[in-house]
Design a protein around this nucleic acid. Structure first.
Lengths: 330, 330
DNA sequence: GCTATTTGCGCAAACGTTACCGCAACTTGC
DNA sequence: GCAAGTTGCGGTAACGTTTGCGCAAATAGC
């Protein structure tokens, strides 16, 4: 029930409020007998600190805010979960905000989180809130381009190398490389992957690799089927074996579905590499580029906490290694 | 930067702290000219309320805590997301806690969330923390058996009817029904489904439907393949067509994978119905029982808020309708 | 046995709000 | 023009902590 305050414990134990506080926080000076008595009475009365009052005094509540586009996406969920667990071990709780990539919502969330609600912020993959956020809170960005600003902390996968790995793998398997990516490629991670794809293909003597841009939202991608098939048909007239590097596993699995429906042999006629190593990739045995979400989370959280403790930050841009997982689609 | 306090605004505007507070909260009496001046000065100085101080005064921070086994699970993620969005619309923020179904962790989270950190709690599918939770906070339970206690609010899918729908559907398709479920069926949702499955089969004249219990964790289920295959082979010797009702879509998709690998024709030789309508079910075109996560979230959140406002709660057990989605595996 | 240090504890301010209460000044009603 | 009501505002207590300061008592040093 804990309706008891520190005053009650003081009254019941016969000591002053300050002595009780010192005992309970194990700071300052008090005798062993005093300690035992106060602890006993506190326990008997089921006392526990009022966190708000403590926060008021300390100026902080020990909460971290996470802005994430959509917790339902397994890649984001994986990062958020690991951040939450990391923070909890360090005695922070985590407020999660689904922003839907909606700038208006983001602003609303941020203004709610400001004013001492949270100690710091983890922001995953949002575009244009940067102005607002810098106002207030110690922040770490995940999946945002390191090049945007020099004074903010960012952590993201090594998207460029991921694309290099995928592209080389496809070419090694004698595929003509095709990249299937988002239509709205405002995300720097996308840019890096396109760059890695193009440069790798060119370095392997393929001057004109194909890039297909389409809407890749779960629902919208179903509309792109015909257009994709047309492009594939054209390419098959020139190349025996095609290799698709998809922007994520969701898209890759969709291509895989189409291949099964249409009877294209995978991987003999069409090879597929996804991105993320989401559960679906494991389930369908898709080859993919694994993003190390544990490491992304760990780097982000540890550096945010350093920021909060005003420790020296050695670097501001963290690039997390990435790896190729070979499965049945290549 | 908002280092400004209400006192600064009072000083700068020439009014008292109380007048400023009244204007800013739009309570009590003040003149229009006063209002304009104070608002202007507050804006100029980029003032915003210190949420902790306000919380101290009000006794609450307007935060809700959610205990969830694992945010990485799409069914849970979907519920958590909708709760978060619901609460945010009502001006609450949401702290998310991944409990991993670990009783020790649950207790730790709950004790962190108590002491005025959160106004209320949403608890998803945990077993034995009920004792602890009842101590403190207004709580809504999701996916817990309504029968456990009469004074707590619970919301869960109509698992019984879900099982009835699935079983009838399989029998309608001339399948001999098999249920594939968790080994540790401490969850009431599981019990209800088993009951629905058994009773339906019996009512359709099948007195001995098969129930296979195994570990259904993502990793562990891979170990059960041989045992499952053995059972299926035995049953095929007696029945032309088998129909598996799987405890969730993850398990269903695993069975589907096995069927493809082993060359069992789906749905002609083996039909499959999953549970949840997770993304994987849509992707693989699995027939399944859809849980209405939106409705579960809505009912849970709205009733928790009623509890917080001390409104009358009309009922304490909410059972959310469920539906059969027919796709390619039946 | 006297000074110097340490120990144990209490007082009170402060964190930034909100809200009750009271009091002028102004307005209304007749 | 006077009583009654209304409006606009300020003073201040309170929410439950933590913490700097001070002081008496106990202990140590020699």
């Amino acid at each position: 029930m804990s309706v008891t305050s520190i005053k009650d414990i003081a009254r019941l134990s016969g000591f002053s409020v300050s002595t009780v506080s010192r005992v309970l926080n194990n700071t300052g000076r008090f005798s062993e007998t005093t300690r035992k008595k106060i602890i006993r009475i506190a326990k008997e009365n089921n006392y526990s600190q009022n966190i708000i009052a403590k926060g008021m005094r300390k100026g902080r509540l020990a909460i971290i805010g996470i802005l994430v586009p959509d917790i339902t996406n397994s890649y984001y969920a994986s990062i958020v979960k690991k951040c939450e667990q990391y923070f909890f071990k360090k005695d922070y709780l985590t407020i999660v905000c689904n922003t839907e990539r909606n700038a208006g919502l983001e602003e609303k969330y941020i203004s709610k989180l400001s004013n001492h609600m949270v100690d710091g912020l983890v922001v995953i993959s949002t575009q244009n809130v940067i102005r607002k956020e810098q106002v207030d809170l110690p922040t770490v960005f995940i999946d945002r381009s390191p090049k945007l600003n020099n004074n903010i902390i960012t952590a993201s996968s090594d998207n460029y190398t991921g694309a290099v790995l995928a592209t080389n793998h496809l070419i090694d398997k004698n595929c003509f490389p095709i990249m299937l990516t988002n239509k709205d490629n405002e995300f720097s991670s996308n840019e890096s992957r396109i760059k890695g794809f193009t440069e790798t293909a060119q370095s392997r003597g393929i001057s004109n690799p194909t890039i297909i841009s389409t809407n890749t939202n779960s629902d919208e991608i179903y509309l792109a089927k015909k257009a994709i098939l047309t492009q594939l048909t054209v390419l098959w007239s020139k190349h025996r074996k095609l290799g698709i590097f998809a922007i994520n596993d969701n898209v890759a699995s969709y291509i895989y579905q189409i291949a099964i429906e249409e009877g294209f042999n995978v991987p003999d006629k069409l090879s597929i590499v996804g991105f993320d190593d989401a559960p679906i990739a494991k389930k369908l045995q898709l080859s993919t580029i694994r993003q190390n979400t544990s490491e992304i989370a760990k780097v982000s959280c540890s550096n945010l906490l350093k920021l909060l403790k005003h420790e020296n930050i050695l670097e501001h841009k963290f690039t997390i290694p990435i790896s190729l997982i070979k499965r049945k689609t290549t």
